[in-house]
Simulated scan of single mutants.
Amino acid sequence: MTKTVLIIGGRGRIGTEVARDIAAYCPDAEITITGREENPDRRVSDEMGQRVGYRALDLADETGLREAIADRDLVVHTAGPFHHRDGRVLQTCIELGVNYTDVSDNRGFTKRVLALKEAAQAAGVTAIVNTGIFPGISNSLVRQGVEQLDRADKIHLSYVVGGSGGAGVTVMRTTFLGLQQPFEVWKDGKWQVVNPYSDRETVEFPPPYGKIGVYWFDMPEAFTLPESFPVQTAMTKFGTAPDFYNHLTWMVAHLWPSSWIKNPAVVEFLSQVSYFMTSITDNFSGTGVAVRAAVSGMKEGKPATFCSSTLHESAAVATGIGTGSIAEMMLDRKLDRPGVWPVEQALPTDLFKQIMASRNMKLYREFSIDT
């Protein structure tokens, strides 16, 4: 039986990779991607096959949005940056009884959609948010680590992206938008305020990255993980390769006037300049991504740490894998739980491992117990 999927923002780099993953692993899925162009410059079917169609859609058009969502089996929201999005797409899905997932990576947006949990439960709608690579696969790495311990006390999530990550200019906008204000983190059993791109530390990632500098960065995991697991600390830190981009970003975050960073024109200028620069350096840095999740606590009465990591040669493709695999599980009814959930609350570890194996994403793990 044909299953119908609507990918909002599917003409973008991330949306395209999500569509490719669903098309590859859901042979009975009929996919429609949306974009603002009335007539896209290339036929979608030429890029992704005959099962992928196109529909022009402006998210500000509420009537058009309802018509696009109606009668779908699943809606996938990939139209970032999510700093600028409200919960309208999910609200419409709930009203129409359509399941939903997204690649959201913004704290404010995540809080708005999680607030729709009871409405989704009442409507029998399953919504899984923050899928992708980080957040997304990263959350599942943490869940796996927590389950290995008798008691988890500290989560330390680190991410590194090579250059642009192959994700287009949107990822640049997301980075600079994330520098605009301090944010709360769960540290030492209480909420504390930290500044973005602060407190650099060096983390060892799998080859080819090795030791990379990472900094505090505001991600939805910063508040969903301590709500999901009773830990004392949950850290989310981000870095870029090559390292000089980290220093440039630190300078913008700490030396530029806040009024500049909060100016949309300045954000757009920085995004375009950064995208141009990475289009050159991507040739030697690559566009890959690595995620490292270290969970510390107690095992059999002794201090222990479970560290897991994964990587991919393309951050954009890895995001498509994270979201596309969740979509596959939802279409197959393997993830059927009415409500709104972050990934770590919705995806069991055994299914997560199956997903990673099916996409040939290797999981590295190291388990140490103090003696």
Rank of each mutant, 00 (worst) to 15 (best):
E37K: 12
S45A: 12
S45D: 12
D46A: 13
E47Q: 08
M48K: 02
V52W: 10
Y54W: 06
R55W: 05
L57Y: 13
D61A: 11
E62W: 03
T63A: 15
R66Q: 14
A68E: 10
V113M: 06
A115P: 14
E118T: 12
E118L: 05
A127L: 07
T131Q: 08
P135G: 01
I137N: 13
S138Y: 02
S140A: 10
R143E: 03
V146L: 06
E147A: 03
K154R: 15
G162I: 02
T175K: 01
T175I: 10
L177T: 03
Q181W: 00
P182S: 03
W186H: 12
K187H: 14
V203H: 13
E204S: 11
F205D: 10
G210T: 02
P220C: 02
G239V: 03
V252A: 13
H254D: 05
L255R: 11
L255M: 11
M277Q: 14
S279D: 13
D282E: 13
G286W: 09
K299P: 00
L311D: 14
S314Q: 08
T319R: 09
T319G: 08
G320D: 11
I321L: 10
S325P: 01
L331W: 12
L335I: 06
D350C: 01
I355F: 03
A357H: 08
R359F: 01
M361L: 11
D370R: 11
